[in-house]
Amino acid sequence: MSLQKDREELRQILKAKSVKTGKFTLASGQESDLYVDCRVTTLDARGAVLVGRVLHDLLRQEEAKRGLSIGSLGGLTMGADPITLAVAMSSSLAGDPTPVQAFVVRKEPKGHGRGKRIEGNFITEQPVVVVDDVITTGGSTLKAIEAIEAEGGKVAFALILVDRSEGGRAAIEDKGYPVVAAFTRADLV
């Protein structure tokens, strides 16, 4: 199947399962006429496959454009978790010579053991990509970036499934991190 067909099928799944209109209070406290629950799509068997393929392609395109070699990707739990794993699996299944590895950023450091904030295959020797399911204000993405950099990671760019087009991209880019989004509000509404 072509990537264009994968992207269109993913867009249709997002529209059917994840996009809701009405009156909603978002995590940021803002009110909105649009709610996007990407987990319903990213935790769907077919949705996860498509998320992996589409975002793996975007990651590799951006990596090539910037002349980088990305070692790992991850973001703030829980929205980023299924996306991160889907992209890493797609990287392996695509036969990438060095598949991109996955990690998870905890909201708070673990309260026992080694007290880690980042779990998994976090590679600090190469640039990393921060992942998020949806950006509105950019707050959760920036929180993940802060944690990644505190642990020695160098964030190359943010890879986002849905940009709600409500200022989050600008907030992230104003801090010096390019944003690559698979879909925007206009694509889904």
Rank of each mutant, 00 (worst) to 15 (best):
R53H: 08
V54L: 02
L55S: 01
L55M: 08
H56K: 06
D57P: 01
L58N: 00
L59R: 03
R60H: 02
Q61I: 04
Q61W: 00
E63V: 08
K65E: 01
R66G: 06
R66D: 01
R66H: 09
G67P: 09
L68T: 06
G71E: 01
S72L: 10
S72R: 01
L73W: 01
L76R: 12
L76I: 12
L76F: 07
M78R: 11
G79K: 08
G79C: 09
P82T: 11
P82L: 09
I83N: 07
I83M: 11
T84E: 11
T84Q: 10
A88C: 09
S92G: 11
S92T: 13
S92K: 14
L93V: 08
L93P: 02
L93K: 14
A94Q: 13
G95E: 09
D96Q: 12
T98M: 13
P99L: 09
P99H: 09
P99E: 02
V100D: 04
V100R: 13
A102D: 05
F103T: 12
F103C: 13
F103D: 10
F103M: 13
F103K: 14
V104C: 14
V104S: 14
V105G: 05
E108G: 06
E108Q: 15
K110N: 03
G111P: 08
H112C: 04
G113Y: 02
G113H: 02
R114F: 08
K116W: 00
K116C: 00
R117N: 02
I118S: 01
G120W: 04
N121D: 04
N121C: 13
I123M: 15
T124N: 10
E125H: 13
E125S: 15
Q126D: 07
P127D: 03
V128Q: 05
V128I: 15
V130L: 12
V131H: 09
V131T: 06
V131N: 03
V131C: 08
V131Q: 05
D132W: 07
D133A: 14
V134N: 05
V134F: 12
T136Y: 10
T136N: 14
T136H: 10
G138D: 06
G139Q: 09
G139A: 15
S140T: 11
S140Q: 05
T141I: 06
T141R: 07
K143Y: 02
I145G: 07
E146K: 15
A147L: 04
A147M: 03
I148P: 06
I148F: 08
I148R: 05
E149A: 06
E149R: 05
E151A: 09
E151L: 05
G152E: 07
G152F: 07
G152V: 01
G153E: 12
G153R: 04
K154Q: 14
V155A: 04
F157A: 10
F157T: 04
F157W: 07
L159E: 04
I160F: 00
I160G: 03
D163Y: 03
S165Y: 07
E166M: 13
